[in-house]
């Protein structure tokens, strides 16, 4: 039981982080807070992938001449590459979302959902 917990506690933390992110996206009224929730969700997914690529007793994925090229001695490089892609795509997403938010606040003078809906129905 304890071994099960120690082997999986990072996944529990990642699940909690993911829930916080989705809760932020669903329940908050301010659009900036929704964007922050989306970023927290992204971070949870990055952590999940990096966590899945780890191996106990292995080192960073840079070939060391003393260790040779034994796959058991290096952690899995593939999640790192995928998450590098993911981080860059996340930055682009955040930038475009911020541009939209700037435009929304210019048009409606507010970032609150209810205010914007009231303003739009006028």
């Amino acid at each position: 039981m304890l071994e099960e917990f120690l082997g999986r506690y990072s996944y529990f933390m990642i699940a909690v982080l993911m829930t916080i992110g989705i809760y932020g996206m669903l329940a908050k009224r301010n659009l900036i807070k929704k964007l922050i929730g989306m970023n927290i969700l992204q971070t949870a997914i990055f952590l999940f992938f990096i966590e899945g690529g780890g191996k106990l007793g292995a080192t960073v994925p840079v070939i060391d001449p003393q260790l040779g090229n034994d796959p058991a001695k290096y952690i899995n490089p593939l999640p790192h590459v995928l998450m590098l892609t993911g981080i860059v795509v996340g930055i682009s997403l955040t930038a475009v979302a911020l541009a939209f938010l700037i435009n929304i606040s210019r048009t409606f003078h507010s970032l609150d959902e209810d205010c914007i809906l009231k303003e739009m129905s006028k």
């Binding site: 860059v88 930038a95 911020l98 541009a99 700037i102 435009n103 210019r106």
Partner: peptide, 17 residues
């Protein structure tokens, strides 16, 4: 490419605010 895009993003977003 990344350097140019990041500076471009900063310029555009800072100008817009």
């Amino acid at each position: 490419s990344v350097c140019g895009t990041m500076v471009l993003l900063f310029d555009v977003l800072a100008e817009g605010m």
